[in-house]
């Protein structure tokens, strides 16, 4: 028997199954502000047994969230900031041996090539190579109209000690959906 009344189009049942099957403990969609990050920090860093891991996990969330905040193609107006802020989605889940942090946001189609090349290159580097590459890029002049330091992806690879997982799906001729998947060993 099916009982429906004012049924929403969003399926809570599918959402529930998806987050349960992937052991997602936290999912957030919208403006990933520093205030939201502070709350996530409170939840993630109650780990006195392994502070280093907890801080790495938090650092990964911060870099992914601030990528979305500054670079997502889909934006929402923030009253607080008085400007348009990038929106996207972040999930934090875990398997028996890993934590997995995923981020998803819309990008312009032409950015796909650069992101792919960057991730592929980063994934060829070992621990020492990542460190040297990050130091080198950090010294480069600030890019105009880009608030970040251009080392977020390298930081994700360093803090996670795993390769960057990524997936880019075309939405239409102008836009694509970028998923980054960062796995960190427990």
């Amino acid at each position: 028997m099916q009982i429906t009344q004012n049924a929403p189009r969003f399926s809570m049942h599918k959402f529930y199954s998806d987050v349960r099957d992937n052991s997602v403990s936290l999912a957030f969609q919208g403006i990933m502000s520093q205030e939201v990050l502070s709350l996530i920090a409170l939840a993630l860093r109650r780990r006195p047994d392994n502070e280093v891991l907890a801080k790495r996990l938090f650092g990964i969330v911060v870099e992914l969230a601030q990528n979305i905040y500054h670079y997502s193609h889909s934006k929402s107006y923030s009253e607080k900031d008085k400007r348009d802020i990038g929106v996207g989605v972040i999930t934090i889940g875990e398997t028996a041996n890993h934590y997995v942090v995923n981020s998803g946001n819309i990008i312009k189609a032409h950015e796909a090539d650069h992101i792919t090349k960057r991730c592929d290159f980063i994934n060829t580097l070992d621990k020492e190579g990542l460190k040297e590459f990050q130091k080198q890029v950090r010294k480069e002049p600030q890019r105009p109209d880009r608030p970040g330091a251009n080392i977020g992806l390298i930081e994700l690879a360093r803090r996670s000690s795993n390769t960057l997982g990524y997936n880019i799906n075309a939405i239409d001729a102008e836009t694509s959906f970028l998923t980054l998947s960062i796995k960190i060993d427990k």
Partner: peptide, 12 residues
């Protein structure tokens, strides 16, 4: 005790 990559550039 913690800083993001963007801050790390400012410290440099």
């Amino acid at each position: 005790t913690y800083f993001n990559t963007s801050s790390s550039r400012r410290f440099l």
